[in-house]
Design a protein around this nucleic acid. Sequence first.
RNA 1: CGGGGUGUGGCGCAGUUGAUAGCGCGCUCGGUUUGGGACCGAGAGGUCGAAGGUUUGAGUCCUUUCACCCCGACCA
Length: 412
Amino acid sequence: MRVTQLFTKTSKNAPADEVAKNAQLLIRAGYIYKVMAGVYAYTPLGLRVVENIKKIVREEMNAIGGQELIMTNLQPKEDWEITTRWDDSVVDIWFKTKLKDDTEVGLAWSHEEAIMTMMKNYIKSYKDLPANVYQFQTKLRNEVRAKSGIMRGREFVMKDMYSLSTDADQHETFYQATIAAYKKVYDRLGLGEDTYVTFASGGAFTQFSHEFQTICEAGEDVIYVNREKGIAVNEEVLNDETLSVLGVTRDELTETKSAEVGNIFNFGTEKSEQMGIYYTDENDKKVPIFLGSYGIGITRVMGVIVEKFADDKGIVWPESVAPFKVYLVSIGDVATEADALYDELTSKGIEVLYDDRNERPGAKFADAELLGIPYRVTVSERLIADQKFEFTRRETSETELLTGKDLLDKLS
RNA sequence: CGGGGUGUGGCGCAGUUGAUAGCGCGCUCGGUUUGGGACCGAGAGGUCGAAGGUUUGAGUCCUUUCACCCCGACCA
C-alpha cells in the first residue's frame, strides 16, 4: 500500500476530546475515527490490526476444536426472558428497539442466551458433545459512561466462545485447554509477559471465575500479583478465604492496575436448566448440558497494546498485529529505486506501507514512528551510492545499513 | 446517575469592560527545497454546538437544550 493512496491522514494535534492515550494515538495516526462517545469506526489501517488480532485468536480457538459461526445483532426478547435477563433492572446496559409491528427486540450486548437457544436445536445426544462454538461479534452496550478510548466503548468487537459438555469432567478438560489457548493468544499478541490468569468473582456456580488481566496503567481493574508463583487475584475477591485457598499471604502480593483482556466462566448446568437445554445420555436419561463461556475483547486488546507499548513518538505495534511489517521511506528523487524495492518486497509477500509522498525526511520518519510499523526501510541517494538500505527497528531505534540481500534475509 | 469542565474554519487554540471574528497546523495554486515534522508568495475556508431572550448592537450577558471530556457510582 502506498501512503498516497491511503485516505487517512496523520495529525500533529491530538484531539481535544480524548484523554486516553490509546484514543489519542489511534486517532492521530488514522487507525480509528470517533463517531460518538464510546463508538469508533475502524479505518483500513485500524481494520488491519483488528483482523490480525482476530486471526491469532481464530487460530488458537480452532486449535482446541472451536467452531466459528456468527450470530445476529437483533435478538428476540423471549430468549432473554427465560433467564430473567431481559429485565432492565437485571441487565442495565440493553439497547432495545421495536420492529414495525411493535415486536420488541434487543440489540446484542451478549450472545449467551442467543447461542444457547440455537444450540438447543442441534445438541440432542451425548454423541453430540462436547461442542464448542465461537464468533467475533460487535457487542452493543448502553454503558452509562464510555471512557478510556477503545478500551471501554458502547460498541466493540469481542470473541465469545461457548462450550457445551456432558458433565463437569468434560467441561473441565475444555476449560483448561482454553486457559492454555488463551495464554498462547496473549503470548502471540506480545502481552504474555504481563498477562495473568486472575482469580475473580465467579457467580453462582463456582467459587471463582478466571480473568485474563494485563498489567496496564490505563486499566480499570486492580489486581494483586505474585510474579514468581504466577498468581493473581482481583481485588474484588481479595480476602482471607481466597488467600488460604490459593496458598499465598497478602504480603507476597503486589497491587497493580490492570486491564481485563479476557474472562472465562463456568456456568455449570444453571443456564441449561433455566433454558431447558438437555441431552440424552447413554441410559436414555435427560441431563442438563454443562456450559462454559469464554471471552476476549478484541478491540480492547488493541487499545491495551497501544497503551502498553507506545512511546513518546507514537504507537509501537508488535509484529504480529502490525498493519504492515515495513514502512518504506524514500528521500529525494529516488522513486525508481524505491518503487523497485517496494515491488520486490511485496512480491515476496512482505507487507509494506510505502511512503511515496513528496515530503521531507523528517515528516516521513515522524509518521513512520507515529504509525508504529515495526521496521522502517529508507532509500536515499547517498544510500544508493553505497548500494545499501537503511533498516531501523521501531521498538529500539536500532539502525543498520544493509545490502539488498541482507535486507531481504532480515525481513523474510 | 451525582459532581466538575469544555463546545469558535478539517484539527489545536486566542478572542480583553458587548460593536457582526483571529492565530498555528492542515488544504489549494506557483516557485524553491529533500537525512528529522522545509521556505517564499498568492488563496480558499467559520456566523462562533442548537433554540429562545435582553440590547441600537451578542462569540461575549440571561434561559433552555444538545454534545463531548474527567472524577465517582456502575461494569453479565
